[in-house]
Structure formats: structure tokens, C-alpha cells
Design a binder for these strands. Structure first.
Lengths: 356, 356
DNA sequence: CTGAAAGCGCTTACAG
DNA sequence: CTGAAAGCGCTTACAG
């Protein structure tokens, strides 16, 4: 039911009842006004640094503020003002090293614009993504930066129409027209695979994330394009897409590396896949070439160093957040697709010749 | 000025003016009530799933809700209710691989309690920590999980008194009595250094973070204790504390490794230091033993594998967040110090004998 | 320079 | 079962 409100199923409803005595004793502007012997509006003027208050009045108000330990309730302020000075970021998993720098970059831009950042992990679950996004909209965040898990974002249309700025990152929105900032997944993967081909490989495996994920599909497309451009027919058994947990990836890699016609090189579709495949390759009797999408820490210290197609996670986050605040500036912007280049970093594993 | 409000220097004040036409056209309960031909309170009942509404009335309200695309404004709700169902997490840097899992764990606990998570990076700057913490309090978060950058948290006293639940993680609060969840930094470091000693080392270097950071000081203390227990006098030149940027750490490592009496082993004080030192050791003519505090990805795949004192970042976050919500349950809790054990993970680098 | 009144969008307490 | 009034803590628009 897009665009509707549901009953009693939102986070706030499950909160424990307010615990009596500890709370509610915060002083308000009214209290400050009473103590300082001035009107409410005068307190507001002082707190907000508005002009038109005599130094003497101001001092009295300041004293009352300090004596009471008053701190303005921004959530009341926000209700009146319209803007909440907060934005939401929905990503897959904050614990993934790819999202840390991205998230930090979004935070820095938000900070520069005086906004706070609310983070949420979708755990790659479209329902959880939607639940989170709508909860954030209910809190009236000014904007949303979304790394989508789902492929249908029509549920956001009423929100966008109501003024919630929205930018998608890493993967495009599904079934709505919205800004998106992404890496050149297709080109990056194609270049990486072409690099392996240039080093003599013909039987090259591809192990990636679930095909419904845009980046996984694009990178596979890049793999296919490179192979086709080189005139190499691709065997179905060379490609494996699915969840990125170590067991699945390990099995996929081991299968490609066994049998009568094993692959001599592997292209891995993201950082998690790469890490697992490195372990598998370390156990192989012959060296197997490897190029991975996404850079990984210490990649240069392994034997051999890991050649990667690096994307700039921080730049993705920064670009998206900047776009978000441009939307919020009020200038009307036609939804755009901004593509950031990737960079092939050669460290050894991608320059190994085919074994046998 | 703890406990006071300042003028015009808070984030929300720097926001651009509200952009006219796109905003403010959100339907409210009043609009829904008018369209459904019922009272405001009836709409509230339906939206919140309260009893006492005839099925017919409910249907009319639901239709109005869908027709208008109404979504309850939770920030107005919150103003009335008292609780905001949101908590803040202040950490050093979301981009650091140590904080990703910690942050995710806090988020999961918050989610289980129906709360959202606002993240902020202090960048190890005490002023920024305070600014962030107070901004979050102004938004009336229900609680705060803080990895402190500063060492004086008296500025939080009025907030805590006003009911903001507060738990410190990774490092204790300064000058206030508050819950804290941390790893056994002293014991972990002592065990790690004792491990090196057990493998025959006597000249062992220690490279850590700035001494004003609690974890850095504790780990140094652990180093000293292990050396003392083994009856090994420590030379000043074996210890180096300071910022963890690669240049400083590299210089420190190179100094210890040169001269007439170079160290034969190094104990590194955190993940960032370890990563840099691994690079330096890789360039040495002789193998140098290494034990690092904090686990790092791919540590097992390096040659040799990196022996570490691992702490459980996710458990730190989870434990702290659970404690926070116990505070919010209303039961009075005496501030506690909860210490989590560390784990020595042997992978090779810590088991190397002294060279020469 | 100062302040009383109305209102932001909800919920609470109460009356019908 | 239903709704009008008051209020959460601020800001806005206006009057003195």
C-alpha cells in the first residue's frame, strides 16, 4: 500500500512507556521567560541571536538560561520551521568496509550543511529498505540518500512529491525517475577482464553477487563484453552469481578451478567475493590470476599483490550528498545519472600468465 | 559554558531558507479528517490502531488517507509524546573498519527497540564531540552511545539529569560517573607482549596512538607490565605514542629497527598502526616479530600471518546499546564498568624468534 | 525594544 | 463510538 499510513506497526509504537520521574523536567523557554521576567519572544530572540534586545535584557535572559540549564528543543523548533536539518542514509550494511567511507563522506557533506545523518542498514532486504525509508520520511528528514536493496521505488513517489530530496547511490532507483550516482561498473569490469585477456588468459571465471543487484549485473555485462570483444566464447560454468557468503563463493571458485578445462583466471565481482577467492586461490597448486572489483585493504602486501578495479566509495557518497543539498536549495533539477570512473590498480595477481 | 544555550551557532541555524512551492503541501490529520467527514481524534485513532472505531468509519478514514497520501508526521508526534525513539552514536570515524561493525551492532539493538540511529564522527576532536553530543541532545535523542574523544564530559551532566540515557564505549567518560563498556585493553596488551617474550624476545617496541586516548594509555601500561613481569628493563626509545598517520608510524618503526640495538619484535597499539608497521617490516632485511592490537582483514593471508589481540567490536556496540535501553526502561542503574575480554589469535608473525 | 496571540501536527484528557 | 479543547515547545506575524 504505497502512500498510505498503517496501523500500529511503526517503530515508535513499540516504545516502552515513558518513565515518569526522570523525564519531563526540562526547562522550556517559558520557564526561562518567567525566571528572567521577560516575554517568551524575548527569550527566543536571545537564544537565536536575533537583534533588538538591550544588553541588559539579554544578560538577564542569559543568566536564567544558565541557572536553569536550558537547551532549546530543536525538535519543537523543527516542527514549526518545516525543515528538520537531518537526512537519512540507507545502505546495505554499515559493517561492510565499502560503506564506511561512503557513509563518512555523506556525513561530512551533511555537516557542512548543518544537517545530521540518520543511518540505516537494509541488510539487502527490499522490505526493510522500504520500512526504513518510510520511517525516515515520517520523521520528516529533509532528504534521503539510498543505496537501494529493492528494484521498485514507487513507494517513494508521494514522499518525493511532498519535497523529500532523494538521491540514489551505487545502484539506480527502480521504476521511478531519480538522481543516481554510480561507478562505471560496466566499464570497470570490462577493463579488468580485458586486462586478464591481454595477459594471455582465455578461460576466465566470473564470480559475482546476486544478479538482481544492479552492480552485479553490470559487472557481469562488462565481463561478457570484454570476452566478446576478444572473440572468446564464454562457457556457462565460468560464471557464478549469487549470495556472497564465503561458502557459496568458495564452492563456485573450486568448481571453476577443477574439471578438465579449469579457468586460469578469475574476475571477482566485489570486495567480499575477492576476499574469499584469495583464500581459495592460495590453496591451488598452480598460480591463478585474479582481478577484483573494489579495492581491499592490504591488497598490496599479499603474495602476489591483488590487482583490482578500484572505485572511490567516498567520492560516491560525497557526490550524492552534494547533489541532495542542491536539490534542497530549491533549484529545480532534472534527475541525472552521474557516473564516476573506476581505476585499474595493477599489483601482480592480474598480471600472472595462464598456468599450464 | 556547560548547560547553556548559545546564539546562532548551531547547525539548524545555517540552513537555507525553506524552498517555497515544493514543500508544505503535506496532508495532515486535519486534512484527512475534513475529507473523511470525521473529527481529528478519529483519524488519530485509525492511524494508531486504537480501538473504538466502527468498521465503516475506519474505512472512510482509510480511504481519505490513501487518497491524500497521508503519512503521520512522527516529529510532531514525538513532541507530544516525550520520547523520540532515536538514539545518537558518536564515534571517531565511521570510515575506520573498527567502527563499522560496532555501529551496525548498535543499530541492530536500536532497531529491536524501535529506535533510529543518528551517527556522528568526532574525528577525535573533543570540541566536535561536544558539539555533536549537544546537537543530538537538542534534538532530544532518548540516549547517547559515545566513544569519547575528549576527557571531560561534565558538559553532559545536565543532559543526563534531564533523562538522556548515556553509555560510553571503548573508552571511559571523563570527570563524570557513567556506564562504560570496554575491552580489556591492559590485559590484552600484556598478554600479547608476554607472548612475544615467551618466544624469546627481549627488545620489543611499542607503537601506539596518542597517549591522551585511554585505550592507547592502557595498552602501553599492559606492555610495561609484561616487560616488568619478565624483568626486562624498557628503553625509552622502544616506545612511541602519537598520531596514527602512516608517516609518523613509519618513522617510529624505522627508528626502533635501526641503530646498534634494534628491537626484534614490535607490538602495535591499534589496527591503523598495525597496517603501517606491516609495510615497514616487509621491507626489513631480517624477519621482525609482530603482534597487533585489533584484528585486521586478510591478516591470515599475509606472509607470515599477523598475530593479533582481537577485540570484538560488534560485542562492544551491542553490549553498550543494550545497556542504554536498560537505562531507558526506567529501572535505576548504578553506573557500571563492563569489560569484555580480548583474544590472542596466533598466525605466525607473533611466533617468529628474534633475528640475529 | 518587547510581548501576546496564533499555529506547526500531533496526542492527552475529557465530555458527550 | 466520537470529537472539541488544550497542550507539547517552539517560531511567525503582528501590534504596541
Amino acid at each position: 500500500m504505497p502512500g498510505t499510513a498503517r496501523r500500529a506497526d511503526r517503530p515508535a509504537d513499540r516504545l516502552p512507556a515513558r518513565a515518569g520521574s526522570r523525564y519531563g523536567n526540562r526547562p522550556t523557554m517559558k520557564d526561562v521567560a518567567a525566571r528572567a521576567g521577560v516575554g517568551l519572544k524575548t527569550v527566543s530572540r536571545v537564544v537565536n541571536g536575533e537583534p533588538g534586545v538591550t544588553p541588559d535584557t539579554e544578560r538577564r535572559v542569559q543568566e536564567a538560561i544558565e541557572a536553569l540549564g536550558f537547551r532549546r528543543n530543536d525538535s519543537a523548533r523543527v516542527l514549526r520551521k518545516g525543515r528538520t536539518a537531518s537526512i537519512g542514509l540507507i545502505l546495505e550494511d554499515l559493517a561492510d568496509p565499502f560503506y564506511g567511507p561512503l557513509s563518512r563522506a555523506v556525513e561530512e557533506v551533511a555537516r557542512a550543511h548543518g544537517a545530521l545523518l540518520i543511518n540505516g542498514s537494509s541488510a539487502e532486504d527490499p522490505e526493510r529498505e522500504q520500512e526504513l525509508a518510510l520511517a525516515l520520511c515520517a520523521r520528516r528528514v529533509d532528504g534521503l540518500v539510498v543505496i537501494p536493496a529493492g528494484d521498485d521505488h514507487r513507494y517513494l513517489e508521494p514522499e518525493i512529491r511532498a519535497g523529500v530530496a532523494t538521491v540514489f547511490v551505487d545502484r539506480p532507483a527502480g521504476r521511478i525517475d531519480a538522481d543516481v550516482v554510480l561507478s562505471d561498473n560496466f566499464g570497470g569490469a570490462r577493463d579488468g577482464v580485458a586486462h586478464l585477456i591481454a595477459h594471455g588468459h582465455r578461460r576466465i571465471g566470473f564470480i559475482g553477487d546476486m544478479p538482481r543487484i544492479h552492480t552485479a549485473a553490470e559487472r557481469l555485462r562488462g565481463y561478457r563484453a570484454a570476452m566478446e570483444e576478444a572473440g572468446i566464447p564464454v562457457a556457462e560454468s565460468w560464471m557464478s552469481l549469487g549470495v556472497t557468503d564465503p561458502e557459496r563463493v568458495r564452492r563456485a571458485a573450486e568448481e571453476m578451478l577443477s574439471g578438465p578445462e579449469p579457468v586460469t583466471a578469475v574476475f571477482t565481482g566485489n570486495n567480499r567475493v575477492t576476499v574469499t577467492v584469495i583464500r581459495v586461490l592460495a590453496e591451488q597448486p598452480h598460480p591463478v590470476a585474479l582481478v577484483g572489483f573494489d579495492d581491499i585493504e592490504l591488497a598490496d602486501l599479499l603474495q602476489p599483490g591483488v590487482t583490482v578495479v578500484a572505485q572511490d566509495a567516498a567520492a560516491l557518497g560525497r557526490t550524492a550528498a552534494e547533489r541532495l543539498f542542491r536539490q534542497l536549495d530549491g533549484t529545480f533539477l532534472t534527475p541525472e545519472r552521474i557516473e564516476l570512473p573506476t581505476r585499474l590498480v595493477m599489483r601482480g595477481s592480474g598480471e600472472l600468465p595462464p598456468a599450464r
